[in-house]
Design a protein around this nucleic acid. Structure first.
Lengths: 218, 218
DNA sequence: TTGACAATATGATGCTCATCATATTGTGTC
DNA sequence: GACACAATATGATGAGCATCATATTGTCAA
């Protein structure tokens, strides 16, 4: 019985991960239907044949790739908030998400902004992977808003507006892309600051509240 | 020379329009790659063969369909603002765009929300059709904001946030869809109301400004 | 009615792709 | 070094699709 082990346990796992990463990037860059299994495997340094030793179908890979992409996006936003106060973090998240860099690199960015509509039409298991990722992101945003002057309940709307800003920035003429990002960034911040509980205190110290932030563009 | 004309001039034009309408709906419902020319023709009551008598390629049809879809969306939003004061119209636009009905019917709704990311990756002529439609929509929104207490410069961000809200509402678990719409709607309104020029006057009559709107959900 | 041609239909063609079947290769154990 | 098998490669298969070529059909002027 005793399974003899000609290959390291980690080898296959590593290869699988390489495929997932290649898929996560390719799919965000060129779309689910814009990329073939053979292309993904090639980008992972393999040929198409071995694919079904790792995944049961293209959909299975897609789900794994979505989870990876969502994780990457959380990491990206997390990294931007290192060593900042709770109040500053929200601005940093908005700045990073709505940055020209993010707009220019969908292959390393938010899968919701890169693939949202087409995944919303996908089979339910793929849809679920997306929905789960969104819930995770909203929960993550809530932790930032909680305990600040902002309203924790704005997390969902905040995500929505950021996604929309990025989608729009990528859809318009490239020359107008940064203008879209800037406009959305300003609007979102204003909305966050104008939440009812904050507004009460804001009236007493309106100027200082508005001056707090800088021109970060990540 | 004198072209004899066995068919009415309008006949072909009518047929073409039927194809465009079928394509505009199909593409928004199932995606650009999710629908074939044969399917579109069938939905227009024709067979696939005649297609190239009307369009040079699938891309040509797509451009026409995009223009049509954008027009439809403008009409939908326009219709919702009939006989309303300038101040009320912005709320009506937001309510209509972020309505459960719009979320449930991408095939008759905003092409940017239904196809934005995949069109952003499309060949430049298709991209341009999308970008042109966006500019038209932003300009249209500006006319509503102009001459009210709102800031005309918020038009771009307003569109972005509405698009994001719709994309997110369609991506999450259907049970949470309306919650996403509600949250985004509230946030967007708050942001619009909090524009600097309005804020100055708002301080004097803060209560009445906030009470003005109703629970319309279209 | 019939001719002539536009509008539409039927029927290829060649490509891409997901998936499957089979062959090859690389690894650790004996 | 040779074995046994996992990991990967090579090579089908069959379906779907955009596009093209050719055949029908419907309309109006005469």
């Amino acid at each position: 019985m005793m399974n003899i082990m000609p290959w390291t346990d980690e080898h296959k796992e590593r290869t699988r991960e390489r495929i997932v990463q290649a898929a996560a990037a390719a799919v965000r860059a060129r779309g689910v239907d814009g990329v073939s299994i053979a292309e993904i495997m090639a980008e992972a340094g393999l040929t198409h044949g071995g694919f079904y030793a790792h995944f049961g179908s293209k959909g299975d890979l897609l789900r794994a790739a979505l989870d990876a992409a969502n994780g990457q996006t959380l990491d990206m936003l997390s990294a931007a908030t290192q060593s900042l106060s709770a109040e500053q973090r929200i601005d940093a998240v908005v700045d990073t998400y709505l940055s020209p860099k993010h707009a220019a690199h969908p292959e390393r960015g938010c899968p919701l902004a890169a693939l949202g509509p087409e995944l919303a039409r996908a089979p339910s298991d793929v849809r679920h992977a997306l929905a789960r990722g969104i819930e995770r992101r909203v929960a993550w945003l809530e932790t930032f808003l909680r305990g600040t002057e902002h309203d924790e309940k704005d997390a969902t709307a905040l995500l929505a507006c950021m996604v929309g800003g990025l989608v729009l920035a990528r859809a318009v003429d490239p020359a107008q892309s940064t203008a879209v990002l800037d406009a959305t960034r300003a609007f979102v911040r204003r909305g966050l600051d104008a939440n009812p509980q904050k507004r009460a205190t804001a009236r007493t110290r309106s100027k200082s509240t508005r001056r707090r932030r800088k021109g970060r563009t990540a």
